[in-house]
């Protein structure tokens, strides 16, 4: 075959050779200087229509008035007033932030060792890919089904309760296992630890192995290498994972609804309840406050670590 497809093995030496030339050819004026704008246009259109406009609409509607049937264009602050001066709101936000904090801590504690094992202890590239895939496959399946899938394990007649009764550890089934705050956090960890594993694994794979050898040559033990070399170099990955986990949990309502059995609240659920009563402006005001909280959280995290470097 004359037309050969280059492999990655060839790409590496070529790319280093081409570095200098690539830069100079980019600098000289091209005939198609409008090309990048045309290429990025579809993406921008989608973001404008389905990200920017919707957010603007929410901000706008949050100042509107409403009655039982209609949205009334206006500029009133009652929605924010009712929201921010209600103890229910503060309680719900506190609960949501608590869920986010606990989930963040657990996913980090679980995700870091998993990523560490994959990156530093699995030595064959094939096994590494295979085990990484094993971790990611559930991400591509239905979240709702994965929540439901805890019923046979955690329910009153579930595997854990039956097992514990069977060995005589308890007499009555444990009720807190399902439809409780415990099961909400468990489901979060089940669903979202992956978001922690992938960026941390990615950071770890970029660590120059000679740094670790150097640390070892200088007499560092395993824990010292972990604490003084690996963890600091993984910070961008940890930050990206944290941003994912925290923002997803803060905006969640499905998991809280299904896994708490209606006993816990979340900001998202509060919005859902408002819209089911057609109180869209109230929901919109809540959405704006939630958005500000999420953006603030992310801004703090981004300040701590330069995330763009990681891409």
């Amino acid at each position: 075959m004359a037309r050969s497809v280059p492999t990655d093995a060839v790409a590496i030496p070529l790319s280093s050779a081409a570095q200098g030339r690539g830069a100079s050819s980019a600098a000289k004026p091209r005939r198609s200087s409008s090309a990048p704008y045309l290429q990025v246009a579809p993406l921008v259109v989608v973001f404008l229509l389905f990200l920017v406009f919707p957010i603007l609409i929410i901000v706008m509607v949050s100042f509107w008035d409403y009655d039982t049937a209609r949205l009334i264009p206006a500029f009133v602050l009652t929605n924010y007033d009712e929201l921010l001066f209600s103890p229910v709101t503060w309680g719900t936000y506190l609960q949501t932030v608590t869920f986010a904090a606990i989930t963040w801590a657990v996913t980090l504690v679980v995700g870091f060792p998993v990523a560490y094992f994959l990156a530093f202890h699995v030595r064959s590239a094939t096994w590494q890919t295979a085990l990484f895939l094993v971790c990611t496959v559930p991400f591509w399946t239905s979240n709702i089904i994965r929540m439901i899938s805890w019923i046979p394990t955690l329910g009153l007649n579930g595997l854990i309760n039956k097992g514990l009764i069977g060995i005589g550890a308890i007499e009555k089934p444990l009720e807190f296992l399902l439809f409780s705050d415990f099961s909400v956090v468990l489901a979060y960890v089940h669903l979202y630890t992956l978001f922690m594993i992938v960026p941390i694994f990615n950071s770890m794979m970029r660590i120059d192995r000679s740094l670790i050898e150097a640390a070892r040559d200088n007499g560092a033990n395993g824990w010292q290498i972990l604490g003084n070399v690996i963890v600091p170099l993984c910070k961008p990955g940890i930050a990206i994972g944290s941003i994912f986990v925290v923002t997803i949990v803060m905006g969640d309502f499905v998991t809280v609804r299904l896994m708490s059995g209606g006993q816990s609240a979340s900001v998202g659920l509060m919005m859902l309840n408002a819209t089911s009563l057609l109180q869209y402006p109230a929901a919109a005001a809540n959405a704006v406050v939630l958005l500000l909280l999420v953006l603030l959280t992310v801004a703090v995290m981004m300040r701590l670590v330069d995330v763009r470097k990681e891409l």
């Binding site: 990025v40 919707p54 929410i58 994912f244 859902l272 958005l291 999420v294």
Partner: peptide, 22 residues
């Protein structure tokens, strides 16, 4: 554009959903 993409990931889904609905 890069920040728009990041925003699209971190803005809660329910917000996008509600906004597009509205």
């Amino acid at each position: 554009v890069f920040y728009l993409a990041v925003a699209s990931l971190i803005v809660p889904s329910i917000l996008i959903s509600l906004g597009i609905g509205l």
